[in-house]
Design a binder for these strands. Structure first.
Length: 257
DNA sequence: ATGGTTGTTGCACAA
């Protein structure tokens, strides 16, 4: 069972590429972020024609997350299930696919450490733990996958300037990843790769992809039972090439049945 | 160099 995360940067603009990729790879579960569309615009029938069931949580112009699956899609929860006031932005959707509780997350970018959006990012990550606590259990098969907008370690970043006061690499952000680890979630990709220079996002500007200037910010986190089943993980860099790509590549994990 | 590029119910703003 392969579970994929892909920030598509507009599902409308990316639908031809996404369709082509699905037909080639046929993943069991595909989690999307930054669909940038309202629920009414989500092309559910299109995915059904490809053999997938889809669930989407969107708001229109910004954000938007989805899960599409060809191994079942049950108990869908849009937004946080932490029982307090709903988050105003569409950044998390959760469903059970073939016994795995899967969340597709689009963590706030943060913009700059002195921007209010950075505090929103940290609060959002605190709420993610509260959500998991309410929605499921560390002893269950759980995968939280998506664009975390955090590089877990310095080995996951090209730009040294980013390490000096930039977002995505601050101790406070990494503390939130540590809190998720304390809850029971480990970085499945790092269970199979130790090298640096392995990224999932490259800025559109300045020929960053061509120069190898990127960050690994698209993560798949799994509970212990999932980590034990994880056979491999890979970034499909080919999907970042060619005409009209997203600035993110898909990241795949395969779990043994 | 506060640079560069892409997307959107765009003409500014988020990434």
């Amino acid at each position: 069972m392969r579970i994929v995360t892909w920030n598509v940067n507009s599902l409308k603009a990316r639908l031809p590429r996404v369709t082509e990729w699905i037909e080639e790879v046929r993943p069991e579960v595909l989690c999307l972020q930054e669909t940038k569309m309202a629920d009414e615009a989500f092309p559910a029938l299109h995915f059904e024609e490809l053999g997938y069931t889809g669930a989407h949580f969107g708001q229109g112009r910004w954000n938007g997350v989805a899960i599409i699956s060809r191994v079942g899609l049950d108990d869908v929860v849009a937004n946080f299930a932490d029982g307090i006031e709903p988050d105003t932005e569409a950044r998390i959707i959760t469903a059970t696919c073939a016994g795995v509780r899967v969340s597709s997350v689009y963590v706030p970018n943060g913009r700059a450490v002195d921007d209010p959006h950075y505090e929103y990012k940290l609060d959002w990550l605190d709420r993610l733990v509260a959500h998991l606590e309410r929605d499921t259990s560390p002893s269950a098969d759980v995968v939280v996958t998506g664009d975390f907008n955090i590089a877990p370690t310095d080995a996951d970043v090209f730009d040294p300037a980013m390490l000096d006061g930039g977002t995505h690499v601050t101790p406070a952000e990494r503390d939130r990843l540590a809190a998720l680890a304390d809850w029971g979630l480990t970085d499945l990709f790092r269970g199979h790769h130790t090298a640096d220079g392995l990224y999932s996002w490259w800025d559109y500007r300045s020929g960053s992809f061509h120069k190898g200037h990127g960050m690994r910010i698209d993560l798949s986190l799994g509970t212990a039972s999932v980590a034990k089943r994880c056979r491999w993980s890979v970034v499909d860099r080919n999907a970042r090439k060619g005409e009209s790509p997203s600035d993110h590549a898909p990241v795949i994990v395969e779990l043994a049945d």
